[in-house]
């Protein structure tokens, strides 16, 4: 409550600005209820105010609404990763921001949007697992939508997207690997997500390496899943398909190697790919490079 009281310094500024008519009184009432800790009444009052023609386009009313919903989120939905109250709060601050470009209004709204967007980001991060990944995507998209309002630097936004895509791709990979027969769609999702990263950042080592590993493992799985009594003709087809996949893996792994030639995993990956392509000299050359690097440690 102390927190709320502090913000009322701002509230006073709004109250001064209020014109004494019925709808402005609703805004004032929302403040009072909020101060008293009665969030339900505060919400009812401010909802009525923003629906009324006189205050529907009032920046202060929307700011108050944002604040009320933010408090409800904090007190009642903090553990709800899909909190509707949080989105209402964000939407209200956004609306207020669009209605009044004065410095003071902008700063207050931005501060609140940043806070709530950060909670979305944190929840997205917490949901990055094989159960809640869809919530992570929704929360992250919302985070980006609102984060863009407060940090318009395309570089920052792009960086967040890259990091999130790398993370969600690794979740897709994990889901695929939990059941390679029935979760094949997740392999495609992982690949397309890494592709998205590489479209905007072709030199991303993680995306290149992981993409290479996806193709590599897919090729290896194709062989390892075969039964021993597979006919030689069928084995030939399996080999054709796996060679195709090993070759698809190669440019990504080569790229990752060119970006960091001393990385252990990449050297192992290249050695494995060339071994699988029956190019043993090349495979050994990467094995030797790895041994040299490990000797130097």
């Amino acid at each position: 409550m102390l927190h709320i009281k502090r913000t009322f310094i701002l509230g006073l500024l709004f109250l001064i600005a209020l014109v004494s008519n019925a709808q402005q009184t609703e805004v004032q009432a929302a403040y009072t209820f909020l101060q008293q800790g009665d969030l339900d009444k505060s919400k009812a009052a401010i909802d009525a105010a923003v629906l009324h023609i006189e205050t529907a386009e009032d920046a202060q009313a929307w700011y108050v609404r944002g604040f009320v919903y933010k408090e409800i989120y904090k007190q009642k939905e903090k553990t709800n990763k899909q909190s509707p109250m949080r989105l209402e709060a964000l939407n209200s601050f956004k609306k207020s921001l669009s209605l009044d470009k004065s410095d003071e209004n902008v700063q207050e709204n931005i501060k609140n949007i940043k806070y709530l967007a950060t909670t979305l980001f944190n929840d997205a991060k917490d949901c990055l697992d094989d159960v809640d990944y869809k919530i992570a995507i929704v929360d992250f998209d919302k985070f980006i939508e609102y984060y863009a309002l407060v940090d318009s630097s395309p570089v920052n936004i792009q960086q967040r997207k890259i990091e999130f895509n790398l993370a969600i791709a690794s979740v897709y990979t994990k889901i695929f690997e939990s059941d390679k027969q029935t979760k094949l769609d997740f392999l495609s999702l992982a690949k397309s997500t890494y592709s998205k990263v590489l479209d905007v950042e072709p030199n991303n080592i993680s995306a290149n390496y992981n993409m290479g590993i996806l193709y590599y493992n897919q090729a290896v799985n194709l062989i390892n899943q075969s039964d021993y009594d597979l006919d030689i003709v069928a084995l030939s087809d399996i080999q054709d398909n796996s060679i195709k996949l090993f070759k698809e893996s190669l440019p990504f792994m080569e790229k990752a190697y060119s970006l960091d030639p001393k990385r252990r995993e990449t050297l192992l990956g290249l050695s494995g790919i060339y071994f699988s392509l029956n190019e043993f000299e090349k495979s050994n050359s990467f094995k030797l490079k790895l041994e040299e690097i490990e000797k130097q440690k």
Binding site: E163, T173, S206, Y209, I213, I223, E265, L268, I273, S276
Partner: peptide, 16 residues
């Protein structure tokens, strides 16, 4: 923490 690299499957020899 989440997007840690996929461990390289050193399975080329086994596949061969």
């Amino acid at each position: 923490g989440v997007c840690a690299m996929v461990a390289p499957a050193d399975q080329g020899e086994e596949a061969n």
